[in-house]
Amino acid sequence: MASQGTKRSYEQMETDGERQNATEIRASVGKMIDGIGRFYIQMCTELKLSDYEGRLIQNSLTIERMVLSAFDERRNKYLEEHPSAGKDPKKTGGPIYKRVDRKWMRELVLYDKEEIRRIWRQANNGDDATAGLTHMMIWHSNLNDTTYQRTRALVRTGMDPRMCSLMQGSTLPRRSGAAGAAVKGVGTMVMELIRMIKRGINDRNFWRGENGRKTRSAYERMCNILKGKFQTAAQRAMMDQVRESRNPGNAEIEDLIFLARSALILRGSVAHKSCLPACVYGPAVASGYDFEKEGYSLVGIDPFKLLQNSQVYSLIRPNENPAHKSQLVWMACNSAAFEDLRVLSFIRGTKVSPRGKLSTRGVQIASNENMDAMESSTLELRSRYWAIRTRSGGNTNQQRASAGQISVQPAFSVQRNLPFDKPTIMAAFTGNTEGRTSDMRAEIIRMMEGAKPEEMSFQGRGVFELSDERAANPIVPSFDMSNEGSYFFGDNAEEYDN
């Protein structure tokens, strides 16, 4: 993207840094990872977990959730003011799984939030270390993106479920800051804005008074975040219109849905970061690795190297396929839920299948599930090659597409044709070009129609051997075009429920 120079890199967003050079960025990201790792080690000690239990991804998720809940100030305040039966607002906890007599047992633990905050700050040299908290939120978000298709949420806001490739980060909490905003897809931002506008339509006082002023500035800020994701002048001009509207209503909703559809071809720039579970960072720190000293990046080879040398386990339900569970977590670790499966298959070195073909449910185990038949197995999170994460949407291309997802959002900077089903997408653009945004709409449609099938995206960008740390010898991959490109292809993934 041309304006790259004016933006802070995501590592800076990730670490609240002012302008830093590459070495400083690597050190501050490393410091953040160190903090998460030290916190995780301490929690495993508190909970008396064995090494194996500490490497269980379900335990990692519970521990991450506990610290996120302990620092969720708004919710904590709300819980104190609106006490609900049987919930102690000062405590947080969740299921911890232990191996007892050759069987997995679930144990519900409860801790004072104050105590968890103390352990977290102690692991982070006394700081609140917001960057580390956001990092864990993005890992949870990436896992949700890989596990669930947001059909219901899309339909509720009037969008087409086939636009799911635009929904990265749709389950990120509001408090995820600049680093969170960077990884949100165009569809996620559109959905947040539509929800806001709908509230304004239904509630006369939404934009009024002292609160209304705050609401208005939040609305304009979200519009600017979305505008910054678009790469064409016409899309940005249309966002200006939406932002400046005196009284946002149905016309703005129409414009936003139009823009979301246009992003299936004229893709937005959305950041991709490899955020790993805390149970990967903990053992690495415990083994003596100093992330701050060595430096770390979320968008280069580092996460690949770390996963190459990590042992992570997962509980497996009786009829689940461990290899499929591994694929789910591998995609989440690489922030690749909406990437082209052919690119992923090449990088991973084994075939990556669409969601609907995987015999696996989510990673988390519900409290009512029976533990008797639970097994555990090693997650295979290694890769054959590594590639640089991208934040450009890439230019655009036609490809055989599917009944489910009709476009992709690249996660890796790797040369390819970008699949999208042009006739299906263009069919949504018939007729409606009147109104105050008509010239911009016409211009956007013209650009979409001009998108050429034979153009290559990320020209000359390749993948790298894991021994090639400096990215000196790019390998331009070859793809098996007979395979499906979309992950949520004609899909039956479970729906995400809060």
Rank of each mutant, 00 (worst) to 15 (best):
I25L: 06
A428K: 06
N211M: 15
T378P: 10
R117I: 11
E210P: 01
R355P: 08
D240M: 04
L193D: 01
E484H: 00
M159I: 13
E495A: 00
N309K: 15
M447L: 13
G462P: 10
D255N: 14
D290Y: 04
A366N: 05
N59L: 04
Y40D: 14
E380P: 02
S310L: 06
S84M: 12
A366K: 05
N144D: 05
I63W: 07
F304Q: 05
H82K: 11
K7V: 00
A237G: 15
G200F: 11
R118I: 13
N124E: 11
S486M: 09
T92L: 10
E53A: 15
Q405Y: 01
N202M: 11
H140K: 03
R106Y: 11
P322H: 06
K227R: 02
L154I: 15
S335E: 05
T147C: 14
S141T: 11
D127K: 11
W139L: 14
Y78C: 07
R317Y: 02
R470A: 00
E292T: 03
V109L: 13
I265T: 13
Q4D: 00
A70V: 01
A403K: 13
Q231W: 01
R317Q: 07
F338S: 07
K103E: 08
Q235A: 10
R75K: 15
A323M: 11
N247Y: 06
F71P: 12
E465D: 03
R65A: 07
N395Q: 07
T92S: 08
T15E: 13
R175E: 10
L154A: 01
P318R: 09
K422A: 11
R26T: 05
I425L: 08
I194H: 01
I253A: 05
M331K: 03
D145V: 02
R8D: 01
L172N: 06
L306Y: 09
W386Y: 12
W120A: 08
Y487D: 07
V476W: 00
G54Q: 12
I225G: 12
A427H: 03
N142D: 05
R118E: 13
S84P: 03
R204F: 02
A286R: 10
A373E: 00
R391S: 03
S486F: 06
E11H: 03
M426D: 00
N224T: 11
S176T: 09
M426K: 02
N370A: 15
D127H: 12
D255H: 02
S376M: 04
Y10I: 14
E465Y: 00
I41L: 12
V312E: 06
T188G: 11
N397E: 00
L79Y: 10
E292S: 09
I119S: 06
K214Y: 06
R348K: 13
T390D: 02
G94T: 10
V285G: 09
S407C: 15
S314E: 11
S482A: 00
E46C: 13
V155F: 06
E375L: 15
V242M: 15
L315V: 11
A237V: 01
N368C: 02
Q415L: 15
I96R: 03
S392H: 04
G177Y: 03
D240T: 13
D34I: 14
Y496C: 08
M191E: 03
N144A: 14
N309I: 02
M374C: 15
I201F: 04
V285T: 09
S413Y: 05
E455W: 00
A22L: 01
V109S: 06
E73D: 12
Y97D: 05
Q241L: 07
E14F: 10
G35D: 02
M238V: 03
S297Q: 03
I41Q: 13
A251M: 08
F291C: 13
N321F: 07
M238K: 01
E484V: 15
A366T: 11
G185I: 02
G17C: 15
S50I: 00
E294K: 12
A336E: 00
L466H: 15
G35F: 09
Q149S: 08
T390Y: 00
F304I: 14
S60W: 03
E192G: 10
A471V: 00
I365L: 15
V186C: 10
A233C: 00
M374H: 05
L466F: 14
M163R: 00
Q409V: 13
K77F: 01
E11N: 07
G37Y: 04
V67G: 11
F39P: 08
S392L: 05
N205Y: 09
F488L: 05
T424D: 14
F258A: 08
R195E: 12
F489S: 06
K90F: 00
D340Q: 03
A181C: 10
R236T: 11
R174K: 07
F71C: 03
P322E: 03
V190H: 05
D372P: 04
V183Y: 09
Y97E: 13
L133Q: 08
A451F: 11
N334M: 09
T437Q: 06
Y40W: 09
E24R: 11
R74Y: 04
G393L: 01
E294Q: 15
S359E: 00
T62N: 15
G268D: 00
A271M: 13
P453A: 06
G177A: 03
R348G: 06
K87T: 08
Q241K: 09
E53I: 05
S262F: 05
S310R: 02
F420I: 14
M136E: 09
E107M: 07
L341N: 10
K227C: 09
L298A: 02
L172F: 07
M426C: 15
I96A: 06
G282E: 07
N492D: 10
V463Y: 13
I365A: 09
E320N: 06
D255R: 04
L328C: 02
S353T: 12
R118Y: 11
E449Y: 00
V463A: 12
S392A: 14
P283V: 11
S176A: 15
G35N: 09
C279S: 07
P322V: 10
R216M: 09
A263G: 12
L306M: 14
E252D: 09
R65W: 07
K113L: 08
K357I: 09
Q235F: 07
I347V: 09
E465A: 01
Q149K: 09
R246S: 10
P410F: 01
A233Y: 00
E443V: 13
K422H: 05
A373F: 14
W386T: 07
G404M: 14
P477R: 00
T92P: 05
V280H: 00
A2N: 00
A451V: 10
V476D: 00
N21H: 04
S376F: 09
N473T: 11
L381W: 03
I445Q: 10
K98G: 05
L328Q: 07
I119A: 04
N124L: 04
S310Y: 02
A123P: 08
Y487A: 03
N498D: 00
A323E: 01
I63M: 14
Y296H: 06
P303Y: 02
R8F: 00
R99D: 05
R55K: 15
S50M: 11
I96Y: 14
Q168P: 12
F479R: 10
Q12L: 12
D302N: 15
Q12R: 15
C279D: 05
E294D: 12
R400K: 15
L154R: 05
P248D: 06
E449D: 14
G462F: 09
G212R: 03
M43G: 05
K7G: 00
S376Q: 10
R26Q: 08
E192I: 10
T23G: 10
T62F: 03
A493W: 07
E469Q: 14
R117L: 13
M331T: 10
N397Y: 00
V280L: 11
A472F: 13
S69I: 07
S367N: 15
K422Q: 12
S377Q: 01
V408D: 03
G450Q: 01
R102C: 11
Y385T: 06
H135W: 03
T390S: 14
E81K: 08
E294A: 14
S269V: 07
L193P: 06
T360S: 12
S326Q: 10
C279H: 03
Y219T: 14
A332W: 02
L56R: 03
T147E: 08
S60R: 10
P161L: 04
A278V: 14
C333T: 12
V299M: 14
E46M: 08
E494Y: 04
D101F: 00
A85N: 15
F489Y: 15
R65G: 07
K325L: 01
S50R: 09
A123M: 04
L166F: 01
R106H: 08
Y289P: 02
S287C: 09
R199M: 14
D421S: 14
T430Y: 03
D439C: 00
I301E: 07
D302A: 13
Y10N: 09
W104Q: 02
A260Q: 03
S269N: 07
V463N: 01
N224Y: 09
S345E: 12
